[in-house]
Amino acid sequence: MTNFVLVAGAWLGSWAWSDVLPGLRAAGHTAHPLTLSGLADRQGVRAGQQTHVEDIVGHVERLDLRDVVLVGHSYAGIPVGQAAERIGDRLARVVFVDSSVPADGESFVSGWPEGRAQVEAAIAANDGFWPALTADDCVGQELGEEETTRIVAGATPHPGATLTEPAVLRGSLGELSATYVKCLLDGPEPGPDVAALLKGERWELVTMATGHWPMFSRPGELARVLLDAAGVGR
């Protein structure tokens, strides 16, 4: 039995995976959606980037999970990639869903050369938080009115320090067994950092013809992608 640990991206919490869980559990596996500190039902908890890494590692260790597939969406790829190194032989695979990936000494905003100043200014102007996304951010991502309303209504401001603090890696991400899921409506190709990792023998690329939030736009298909990535698809 595989243990999927699911971490959504900026502004979102465990609730974002609710439509994906049935597909994973119906296949006989366990799914653990996780809310990171400072978000959703954990608002008010102080958080930096390493807090989020510790959230994930602590969850795996506290429940004594084995055969773990860590799933990181969007921003969450950064703490998930670091956590994957730290859970040792508990890890079966990492799945990055249209996500950023960590680079030692670099932050989330380091990968946004054109938007870094804008994000940092927004954080400074909003008491240390990145303001939650709006309906305009969801345009062109294969989201209907219902899905857009769910995302916007459930989104909470994101702790800014998690976006600006640097990642800490102990080794090379290329040493991890990983699947990268590229959502094509959010751009036809992975970024150069991911493209370099995909040249290695331990990384594979899967594409989905949908937008940046596939847990809302195509939850059943995403569940099948995760099962296949874990080698337990039916």
Rank of each mutant, 00 (worst) to 15 (best):
V5P: 03
A8I: 02
L12S: 11
A16W: 01
G23R: 05
G28F: 07
H29F: 08
T30R: 11
T30L: 08
A31C: 09
H32I: 11
H32V: 10
L36W: 01
R42S: 07
V45I: 14
Q49G: 11
Q50I: 02
T51V: 08
H52T: 02
E54T: 13
I56N: 02
G58Q: 14
R62Y: 11
D64P: 10
L65A: 06
L65N: 09
V69D: 00
L70M: 11
S74P: 04
Y75Q: 04
G77N: 09
I78K: 00
I78V: 15
P79E: 08
Q82R: 08
A83K: 06
A84L: 08
R86I: 04
I87A: 03
D89R: 12
A92Y: 00
R93K: 14
F96M: 15
V97R: 01
V97N: 02
S99M: 05
S99W: 06
S100A: 13
A103R: 14
W112E: 11
G115I: 01
G115L: 11
A117L: 08
E120S: 11
E120Q: 14
I123H: 00
N126T: 09
G128Y: 03
F129M: 12
W130G: 00
D137P: 04
D137K: 06
C138P: 04
V139A: 15
V139T: 14
G140Y: 12
G144M: 09
T148M: 14
V152M: 05
T156E: 07
H158Q: 15
E165D: 15
Y180V: 09
Y180I: 09
V181D: 00
V181N: 03
L184Y: 06
P188N: 10
V194N: 06
V194R: 00
A195S: 15
A195H: 06
A196R: 13
L197W: 01
L198I: 01
K199N: 08
R202D: 12
E204V: 11
A209R: 13
T210A: 12
G211S: 12
W213Y: 14
M215E: 10
M215W: 05
A223W: 00
R224Q: 15
V225T: 12
L226I: 13
A229C: 07
V232M: 03
V232L: 06
G233F: 10
G233E: 11
